[in-house]
Each structure stands twice: as structure tokens, then as C-alpha cells.
């Protein structure tokens, strides 16, 4: 790990200012993704801006038709939240499937969404539920936020402060864990709203994506059988030493069916 300056601001504007004024500086949330890259000397930021003193970034609030989760809320807190478990059990389940206990205790929803790892779980939940990403500067709809491999709509110095989830009628998440990393080899989030169904897939390609044919089929019949015959095009899906693209495509259908099952149970 190369030496770096360390800042712990207690106001969001201060944090944003540090971030824009120190070139190449980085925010650190749980550090679960960032610290290993520093240790491997893959990243060399001159300064880290730690978000842990920004109390307003923590916690989960009930907005009636929405739930808002502060960016610094660790996965374990979301998984154990009675509010999330009651209103969006699929989201609590998703959080409980991330990594291991240590990672869930440190890793945060803001860090995960900002990082947009192609195999991360939260992006599927955020896109599947059509959530809104609230930043230090604006609000961004999930459909406009994830721009592909580790790319997001976040601008320079922009800090995610919270994520607002609409409460669905039903929702479920199923994840086929990559054998070694236990990230999603394929993860599918399915959410049913009065206005229709959203299906979001992570792990299968370079970034989280929706599956319109499945959404249409499930909107008319919210049952696994409705999508059993829908095959995903293998074009653009990932092939690596863990899984070939056609296997990933197959798993999308299997996981989607199981996610619907999970949503119904």
C-alpha cells in the first residue's frame, strides 16, 4: 500500500470539496473493495476521504410507499432490518447473500452501487426495483445510473448519500453464486408493481441489465411458467473460466424463475 493522506470530514459539502480539490482522491466507505486495490498497489490515490463520520449517510427510513437507505448503511444492517424485511423482503434477502459476515458488516450499499461491479448484487436490486440514487448534487433514476462495467452516472466529486426504493407488491432475488468468489455468477431481481414487472440481471454481462421480454410476460402472468421458455441472447454475455456465455444465459432463465418463486413465497 502506498502512502496517502487521510481525511474524515463531518459535513457532506466538505467531503465533496476535498474530493474535487485533491486530484485523484478517493472516497472510502466500507473499504471492502477499495482497500484490497490499494494493497495490491492497483490504485494509488494521494488522499482518501472517509465517509464514516457523515452521520446523515447512515440508517434506514420509512417513507410509506418508499424506503430510503443511507449510503453508509452496511449490508448486514439492511439484511437484519425489520422494516426492509417486512416491506421489501427480496432486498433484505439480497443483502444477506452478499459476501461473508465480515464483508456484510463493513461493506455499504453506497460503496457497492458506486462501484458497480458487474457481479455485485445491489445493482440488480436497485435496477430491479427502479430505485432512485440520491447524491450530494441531484437524484438519478436507476435506469440512468448504471452505465456498464464499473461505470456510473456519478460525476466528479459526486457522493451518493442515499438510495430510495419504491415498495413493490412483490419482489424476489435469486443468486447463483460464483463458486470461488461467491459474487453473482448470475443474479436476478424480480419486482412486481401495480404498473408492471421489472426484471434486472447481474453477473451475466458487463453490467446490470433489464430483460424486457420477461418483464412483459410476467406483467401479464406473474408465475415462473410465464418465463420458462424465454431464452436470453448470449451476445454480449460474459464468458470466463467460471462460466461460458450460453451457460450464463441459461442460468438467467433458471434464476428468474426461482426469483419469481421467491417473490411469491
Amino acid at each position: 500500500m502506498k502512502p496517502f493522506a487521510y481525511h474524515q470530514p463531518d459535513q457532506i459539502p466538505d467531503a465533496a470539496k476535498l474530493l474535487t480539490s485533491i486530484e485523484d482522491s478517493k472516497l472510502v466507505a466500507g473499504g471492502m473493495t477499495l482497500i484490497p486495490t490499494l494493497k495490491q498497489r492497483l490504485a494509488n490515490p494521494p488522499a482518501l476521504v472517509d465517509l464514516s463520520k457523515l452521520g446523515s449517510l447512515k440508517g434506514i427510513t420509512d417513507g410509506g410507499a418508499t424506503i430510503t437507505i443511507g449510503a453508509m448503511t452496511p449490508h448486514a444492517v439492511v439484511a437484519a432490518s425489520k422494516l426492509v424485511q417486512t416491506k421489501i423482503p427480496g432486498l433484505a434477502a439480497l443483502a444477506s447473500m452478499i459476501g461473508d459476515p465480515a464483508v456484510r458488516s463493513r461493506g455499504t450499499i453506497g460503496g457497492s452501487v458506486a462501484n458497480n461491479d458487474p457481479a455485485a448484487d445491489y445493482p440488480a436490486g436497485v435496477l430491479g426495483l427502479g430505485a432512485t440514487i440520491i447524491t450530494s448534487a441531484r437524484e438519478i433514476a436507476a435506469d440512468k445510473f448504471f452505465l456498464g462495467l464499473f461505470e456510473t452516472a456519478l460525476g466528479p466529486g459526486e457522493i451518493i448519500t442515499a438510495i430510495r426504493f419504491p415498495v413493490p407488491l412483490k419482489a424476489g432475488y435469486t443468486k447463483f453464486k460464483a463458486p470461488a468468489s461467491r459474487y453473482a455468477l448470475v443474479g436476478v431481481f424480480v419486482a412486481k408493481f401495480a404498473e408492471g414487472v421489472r426484471v434486472a440481471v447481474t453477473g451475466a454481462g458487463p453490467g446490470v441489465f433489464r430483460v424486457p421480454p420477461m418483464e412483459a410476460a410476467l406483467s401479464s402472468n406473474f408465475d415462473p411458467s410465464a418465463i420458462a421458455a424465454i431464452k436470453i441472447d448470449t451476445d454480449g454475455l460474459t464468458s470466463d473460466i467460471h462460466a461460458e456465455a450460453d451457460y450464463r444465459a441459461h442460468l438467467v432463465t433458471v434464476m428468474a424463475k426461482r426469483a419469481v418463486d421467491a417473490a411469491l413465497s
Binding site: 447463483f176 463458486p179 415462473p224 411458467s225 420458462a228 421458455a229 467460471h242 462460466a243 461460458e244 451457460y247 441459461h250 424463475k257 426461482r258 418463486d261
Partner: peptide, 19 residues
């Protein structure tokens, strides 16, 4: 691995029942 077994089953053209 799951991928390898799935591939074998594909080649064996297993009729996978829908759930």
C-alpha cells in the same frame, strides 16, 4: 463444475422439465 455438468446434459439433450 456446474457449467461442465450442464454442458454434458446439453450434449445428452436432456429434456429439462419446467418448474
Amino acid at each position: 463444475t456446474p457449467n461442465r455438468i450442464w454442458r454434458l446434459l446439453q450434449n445428452a439433450s436432456l429434456p429439462v422439465a419446467a418448474e
